[in-house]
Structures are given as structure tokens and as C-alpha cells.
């Protein structure tokens, strides 16, 4: 089906030119990186931009680097780039595990992490890892650069903290200083590509610190603060897990839709918590299931 809506197309090569165009078209501009979300939305007449700004020629947005314990993911880095990166797999295996659940090769070859977080959909698989690693999102606008914590990024379904005329330049993950393990558990309807019906990312740090974040069970991907308050400082035991499972209904607010009912999401979230947190803790010392192995 053809796209009916008409728009201007730009292909700037410098960030300042992108910002200039954004300033000119304001809310009527859309940035195009992978396009796997944007093009479908224009086609489906859910978006009517006046300007589509292809940023793929902005070379400086393409970097994927690990410097001084920090992973810099440029706005043009695709999911395939991340999955194929030895650094990501070795240093950030839990992030790598989450990214591997997204879409399939033909989409991952185009879709970018930056585009993904800009879409800010509730079922964002990359959300829990971003939130638990407490990534920083570096954005640039007329006023210059600013850094937004992932914790402050998600404002609502398809709403993020980016101001009009700003673009995401890079996403920075800091490697936790302590030994840690993580897990991303995703509920889909089958093993093939699916949007998460529940997503749970857990980062467990040595010394009984636990960071948990959910996606697809509320308007935005979100840290599970109540669970963390219960768990933090305590060694993981079966009875602690049981207590944590009981807290789940207070932590998440899933809805019923064509993909799953609210009741099932609540039920499986508990199973995911139990399996995910055990795996994350075991992985601190290199035990437990290999990263990438499906836990449900």
C-alpha cells in the first residue's frame, strides 16, 4: 500500500543541520533513522509529518564504543550492531539478552536503539535494561546538550522527555562497579517474534542489591520500586521470592487486550520474577543459565 501523505525529505550530514531543521519544522518534523516504526506509522496514517529528516548520514551518530567503563551507543547503532558486538555481549550480557528478543534480523538490521526509545511504547523490550543500568540519554538541541537519565525518559505511551527540536545523540551505559548478573524475561505468545506481553529486566549486584524494571504492564517501562525496597539488602531465599511475588499486583497494572488478559499477565509476572531473579543472582558468579537462554 502506497503512502498517501506527502512530506519534505532532508538528509543533513551534520548535527547542527539536523537541529536547524528541527527548529524550522518543530512538532511537524520527524527524524528517520531505521524507519521501522516511523514509516509504518506514516503509512497507517497515524503520523503526518511535514518534514522527514533522515539522519543516517550524520556519521558521528554511528559510534559504538566502550570507553572507561562506559558504553556509548550512537543514535544510528542498530540492534544488529548491538547483538554482533563482542563488547555488548561480554560486558553487558543482560542488555544483550534483552536486545536479542526484539523483532528479527530483517528489522534489527535497520531499527536503532535510539529510535526504539524515542517510540517509547509500553512494550519496549530495551526499556528494562536501560532503566536498571540507569543509562544516560544524551540529547542535543538549540540550547546545546543535555543528559536525561533513563529513569526520567518515559513519560507515557509514545511520550518521552525529548523537547521539540531535540534529537537523541547517544545512549550511555555505565558498567556497574560491582560484580553483577542480570536477566531479561519476556512473555510472548510463542517463540517467534512478538511484542512483549510482560517484560521483566533484573540487574542483581553483589551485596544484595537488586534493580528491577518491567515493560508492557503499565503505560511506560518502569522500575519496580516496591519490589526493590523489599528485596534490597537481603540475600535471595525462596521465602523472599514468595514475598516478592505477592507484591507484584501492587507493582504493575497490566491491561487485557488481544495479546493477553490482565490476569494472565499478573500470573506470569510472578513466574518471571522467580525465574529471572534466580538466574540473575546465579549469573553474578557465572553460574545459572547462559545469557540468551529462554527462561519461560
Amino acid at each position: 500500500m502506497a503512502i498517501v501523505h506527502e512530506f519534505e525529505y532532508f538528509r543533513p550530514e551534520k548535527i547542527e543541520d539536523v537541529i536547524k531543521l528541527l527548529g524550522e519544522y518543530k512538532s511537524k518534523a520527524r527524524l528517520l533513522a531505521g524507519g521501522t516504526d516511523l514509516v509504518v506509522r506514516i503509512k497507517d496514517e497515524l503520523e503526518f509529518p511535514e518534514a522527514v529528516i533522515n539522519i543516517k548520514e550524520v556519521e558521528e551518530l554511528r559510534k559504538l564504543e566502550f570507553i572507561e567503563g562506559k558504553l556509548h551507543i550512537g543514535a544510528l547503532v542498530t540492534f544488529t550492531d548491538l547483538i554482533d558486538s563482542d563488547i555488548v555481549r561480554e560486558q553487558f550480557p543482560f542488555f544483550w539478552e534483552s536486545v536479542k528478543t526484539i523483532a528479527s534480523v530483517g528489522v534489527r538490521n535497520r531499527a536503532t536503539l535510539a529510535g526504539n526509545i524515542c517510540s517509547a511504547v509500553p512494550s519496549l523490550d530495551s526499556g528494562p535494561a536501560l532503566l536498571t543500568y540507569e543509562a544516560d540519554i544524551v540529547v542535543m538541541g538549540k540550547e546545546g546538550e543535555r543528559v536525561i537519565s533513563a529513569l526520567d525518559w518515559f513519560l507515557g505511551p509514545r511520550k518521552n522527555a525529548l523537547k521539540e527540536s531535540e534529537l537523541v545523540c547517544e545512549i550511555i551505559f555505565s558498567l556497574p562497579e560491582r560484580k553483577h548478573g542480570g536477566s531479561y524475561v519476556k512473555l510472548g505468545r510463542y517463540k517467534g517474534e512478538d511484542l512483549a506481553q510482560v517484560g521483566l529486566g533484573i540487574l542483581a549486584l553483589e551485596g544484595n542489591e537488586y534493580r528491577l524494571a518491567f515493560c508492557a504492564v503499565g503505560p511506560i517501562p518502569k522500575r519496580a520500586k516496591k519490589l526493590e525496597a523489599l528485596l534490597n539488602g537481603k540475600p535471595l531465599t525462596d521465602s523472599l521470592i514468595e514475598e516478592a511475588k505477592k507484591l507484584i499486583p501492587e507493582e504493575i497494572s497490566p491491561i487485557t487486550d488481544v495479546r493477553a488478559t490482565k490476569e494472565y499477565r499478573l500470573h506470569v509476572a510472578k513466574v518471571m520474577l522467580e525465574r529471572g531473579i534466580k538466574a540473575a543472582v546465579e549469573r553474578i558468579d557465572g553460574n545459572g543459565p547462559a545469557y540468551g537462554e529462554k527462561l519461560i
Binding site: T36, V39, G106, N109, R110, E193
Partner: peptide, 28 residues
């Protein structure tokens, strides 16, 4: 028409992509 099925896959710079969700102008 929305990147779900792969029937329109081509190799763009050696990588498999969904030509139904790419603007033609992008491949300049």
C-alpha cells in the same frame, strides 16, 4: 506491508532489510 513477514526482503549494503518499510529516497 509492515515488516512482519519478510517477503520483501532485499540486501541493502549486504544486510537483509524489509523494502516495504523503507523510503526509496533513502537508498540514494
Amino acid at each position: 506491508g509492515r515488516g512482519d513477514c519478510g517477503a520483501c526482503t532485499i540486501l541493502l549494503n549486504g544486510k537483509g532489510v524489509r523494502s516495504c518499510i523503507i523510503l526509496a529516497i533513502e537508498v540514494d
